[in-house]
Simulated scan of single mutants.
Amino acid sequence: MRYVMMICGPESNWAGPEAEELMAAVGTWWEKWHAEGAIVEGGAELQPVSTAKTVRRGADGKALVTDGPYIEIKDVVGGFILLEADSMDEAVAVAATWPGIEAVGDQVEVRPSTGR
């Protein structure tokens, strides 16, 4: 089954002097889990929320596009990874090794795919 692993935290976690060291650790993490078949080809590091557009239903029922995220929040999704696992417990075990959890306090959310 496929799971989406979303990396969440303040954008400042992924910038500055710590980011280069963290990205090296992420590369090692990626290689390990990809070789074991836990990472499906796909996923992406996302650009800052300042580059986002939010599309929602406007008062007239038509799409309304605004700059940036719809809600101002401290923690944002900075990227996502597609995992392949036999169970949620297995997917969570992979996610629990994400280097950013220990290094900068990232949170990782894991959700099963609907398969559609």
Rank of each mutant, 00 (worst) to 15 (best):
13 N>D: 10
37 G>F: 08
108 V>K: 00
25 A>V: 03
74 K>F: 09
4 V>H: 02
11 E>A: 11
40 V>Y: 02
106 D>A: 14
91 A>R: 00
89 D>W: 04
44 A>P: 05
42 G>N: 09
85 A>S: 03
57 R>K: 15
24 A>P: 09
24 A>F: 12
51 T>P: 02
113 S>A: 12
62 K>Y: 07
16 G>I: 12
32 K>R: 15
33 W>F: 14
111 R>S: 06
43 G>I: 03
12 S>A: 15
31 E>R: 08
32 K>T: 15
66 T>L: 11
32 K>S: 02
31 E>T: 05
108 V>Q: 00
26 V>G: 01
82 L>K: 08
35 A>R: 14
84 E>K: 13
50 S>W: 05
44 A>K: 12
21 E>W: 07
47 Q>W: 00
67 D>F: 13
76 V>Y: 04
56 R>I: 13
52 A>N: 13
23 M>K: 06
100 G>T: 11
56 R>K: 15
110 V>G: 03
12 S>K: 14
1 M>C: 09
49 V>L: 07
35 A>V: 03
82 L>T: 12
104 V>S: 02
105 G>Q: 08
79 G>L: 06
89 D>N: 14
11 E>C: 03
53 K>L: 12
66 T>D: 05
75 D>R: 11
79 G>A: 07
20 E>R: 11
16 G>Y: 13
53 K>T: 12
81 I>C: 09
81 I>H: 00
14 W>M: 09
39 I>W: 00
72 E>G: 13
85 A>Q: 02
24 A>R: 14
87 S>V: 11
55 V>P: 07
28 T>F: 05
106 D>H: 15
46 L>N: 10
13 N>I: 01
115 G>A: 07
44 A>V: 09
23 M>H: 11
1 M>A: 12
52 A>M: 06
36 E>W: 02
35 A>W: 02
104 V>C: 08
98 W>L: 12
108 V>F: 04
101 I>A: 05
29 W>S: 00
86 D>E: 15
108 V>N: 02
80 F>P: 02
11 E>R: 12
94 V>S: 02
50 S>C: 12
109 E>P: 03
104 V>W: 05
66 T>H: 03
48 P>K: 08
19 A>Y: 05
73 I>W: 09
22 L>W: 08
99 P>D: 04
74 K>Y: 00
20 E>G: 14
110 V>F: 02
80 F>T: 01
15 A>R: 13
104 V>A: 02
111 R>G: 04
8 C>W: 04
24 A>H: 13
64 L>W: 09
48 P>D: 04
76 V>L: 06
55 V>S: 09
98 W>Q: 06
56 R>V: 04
60 D>V: 11
29 W>A: 06
38 A>F: 11
25 A>W: 01
105 G>N: 05
107 Q>D: 11
32 K>W: 05
9 G>R: 00
17 P>D: 14
79 G>I: 10
49 V>Y: 04
102 E>D: 15
56 R>C: 05
80 F>Q: 03
39 I>C: 01
46 L>S: 00
48 P>V: 04
87 S>L: 13
38 A>L: 06
85 A>D: 06
95 A>W: 00
17 P>N: 13
62 K>E: 14
85 A>R: 01
91 A>P: 07
43 G>E: 01
114 T>S: 14
6 M>R: 14
41 E>D: 13
107 Q>P: 01
56 R>N: 05
13 N>V: 03
24 A>K: 15
